[in-house]
Every structure is written in structure tokens, then in C-alpha cells.
Computed example of a mutant assay.
Amino acid sequence: MNVQAKWLGGRAFTAVGPSGFDMSMDATAAYGGEGNGNTPTEMLLGALAGCIGIDITMILNPHLDQIKSIDIEVKGTRREELPTAFTAIEIVFTIEGEITPKKVWRAIRLGKDKYCAVSASLKADVHFSLMLNGVQVEEV
């Protein structure tokens, strides 16, 4: 895979990959940017949510008619010193529907352990939790 990034001036970049969609990035004002795009670290967490989300929907494909909604929140904890890399990441799945926790946890585990290229590429400890129909469900 090849992604090309082009400098737009200041701290702003735009990147495009094989899919052809633009990714706008900029630093916050604290780092000399103007906030005219997502920060690269925001994009990293978003990529993680998208990757694991795609994986679990593929795994749960036979049961998607039983699911009303899937929301994924990714919370990253970063080091204080440079580089301010993520040291821990928590992914919270909030799912509404008539599906068993066992099926959802199986999909999460498979996504994490076998399919999600983004999480497999990170050094941070990545932890998962599940809210199913408004109730936190422990891993089964």
C-alpha cells in the first residue's frame, strides 16, 4: 500500500491512498497549526475504530439484521514526554440489538487477534469493553 502526503503550508498536509479519498491533517495551534484538519493522532484512533468496526461487521454479517446500531469510542492515553505516543487505548463498543454477548465478544476477539491490521500495528496496550443494549457486558 502506498499513501502520498502533500504539504499545504504551515503544518497542514493532505494525503491520498489507493482508495482515492483525501485525508486532511493539520496540527493544533499549540503546535503551530491552524486546526484545518484532523491531527494525525486523531486519524490513528479513527483508523483503529474503523478497522475493528469493519472486522466485527464482517464477522457478524449473518446477524447484522439483529443489530440496530454500533457505536465505537476510542480513548487513547499518551506519554507526557516526547514522543507523546499512545501507551494505552480503550475501545468501547456500544451496540443495540437482539444479539448475544457471546457472539459480539467472539467478533471482537477475532477482530483484535486475527483481522485488525491497525491494532496489530500498534505498540500500545489495547483494551476492549462492550455496552450491549445499555448494559456493560463482561467478556464471555
Rank of each mutant, 00 (worst) to 15 (best):
M43Q: 13
D71T: 09
N2K: 15
R11Q: 15
K75I: 13
T28N: 08
W7F: 13
A47E: 02
P18V: 09
V16Y: 05
G33K: 01
G17S: 09
T41I: 12
G32F: 11
W7V: 06
F13I: 02
R78G: 03
K68N: 04
R78M: 07
G9T: 05
D55E: 02
G76Q: 07
F21W: 07
V16I: 15
A30V: 10
G46W: 05
G53H: 13
L48I: 04
L60I: 11
A5G: 13
S24R: 14
I54W: 04
G20P: 03
D22H: 15
A27M: 14
D55K: 09
P40E: 03
N38M: 14
E34D: 13
N38H: 11
G50S: 11
H63S: 10
A30I: 11
E42V: 11
Q4C: 05
M23F: 11
E73P: 02
G33A: 08
K6T: 15
G37M: 12
I67Q: 00
A49F: 11
I67C: 01
V74H: 05
L45M: 14
G76M: 14
T28I: 13
D22W: 08
G9Q: 12
I59A: 00
A47C: 09
G35Q: 08
G32K: 03
T57R: 13
M58L: 01
L45A: 11
I70N: 01
P62M: 11
T41F: 09
V74N: 06
K68C: 01
T14C: 02
A47P: 03
E34N: 14
G35T: 11
A29E: 15
P18M: 08
L60D: 00
K6G: 03
D26N: 06
A47G: 15
G37Y: 05
D55M: 02
G9N: 06
A12D: 06
G53Y: 13
I52F: 07
